[in-house]
């Protein structure tokens, strides 16, 4: 408990920092609404004259767009950027002299923006969805609860991936290429922009072999009640599997990276 406390204060303070960026909160929100709106228009045109595509009716698709935005946005891409900036400008030195586990510290730190920008913006966007676009709620109370659990795993997977990518800064001095590559691949293969059921079978198979779908597609399919109750356990276990694998990957990368450090400046 005491140990947890010294990590929780990191969350509290990063939340404080996030809250000083009020204008950024506003732009994130507007950006989010714009993105959702764009997708809405595109899908409306796509559905012109069609009842159902890829197993979704238009109204299900609209729900999909809003929920998937909220899920994708839950974890912003700041972790890897922060880690790489810290490494580039040498301020990682401050983290190295503190009696904290680097990985855990970064995780708890990232929760600050998850709470402020992720959850809050998500709630606003979804509220707009309910109010104006009449999106659907979760299939049932139980599905809603399981959706929340699935979201937690999604955040953990997201963090672990970002962390691993961020640590690459120790071997490539500029990391933006990796960050972008990861973003593009995960947008494409997570089902964030288009449901994976639209994919041709071979691509569908590839997507399900990689961790990205567990970040967006899995929680949404629970929310929409597309998964039979007895299969949900499988979906959650699969997410948990990726959490463990990726967390361990990050752990070993840090063990390797922290011996390679050279600090610039000073």
């Amino acid at each position: 408990m005491k140990r947890l406390k010294k990590y929780l204060i990191l969350t509290e303070q990063s939340l404080q920092v996030a809250m000083t960026y009020r204008v950024r909160f506003f732009t994130t929100m507007v950006t989010g609404l714009i993105q959702v709106l764009a997708l809405y228009y595109i899908w409306k045109v796509v559905y012109a004259g069609q009842k159902s595509l890829g197993g979704y009716t238009l109204s299900e698709m609209v729900t999909y767009i809003f929920i998937s935005y909220a899920v994708r946005n839950l974890y912003t891409f700041n972790t890897e950027r922060k880690i790489s900036e810290n490494i580039r400008d040498g301020s990682v030195i401050i983290d190295l002299i503190r009696p904290l586990n680097y990985q855990l510290a970064r995780f708890f730190e990232s929760l600050g923006s998850v709470i402020f920008e992720g959850i809050l913006v998500g709630i606003i966007v979804i509220a707009v969805g309910f109010g104006i676009f009449h999106i659907k709620g979760p299939a049932s109370f139980m599905y809603g609860t399981l959706f929340a659990i699935s979201l937690t795993f999604s955040v953990l997977i997201n963090f672990s991936l970002s962390y691993a990518v961020g640590l690459l800064s120790f071997s490539t001095t500029s990391i933006f290429g990796f960050i972008n590559a990861k973003r593009f691949i995960s947008n494409f293969l997570s089902g964030g922009l288009i449901p994976l059921t639209f994919f041709p079978p071979w691509l569908h198979k590839i997507a399900f072999m990689l961790p990205f779908h567990a970040m967006v597609s899995s929680p949404i399919s629970i929310y929409l009640g597309q998964i039979e109750a007895y299969q949900i356990a499988n979906v959650l276990l699969e997410q948990l599997f990726w959490v463990i694998i990726l967390w361990l990957a990050g752990y070993f990368m840090w063990a390797w990276a922290s011996r390679k450090i050279t600090i610039h400046g000073g």
């Binding site: 030195i93 190295l96 002299i97 011996r259 390679k260 450090i261 050279t262 600090i263 000073g266």
Partner: peptide, 9 residues
């Protein structure tokens, strides 16, 4: 100093 503080190996 960085080696003494454990920053550098």
């Amino acid at each position: 100093i960085k080696m003494l503080t454990g920053v550098l190996v």
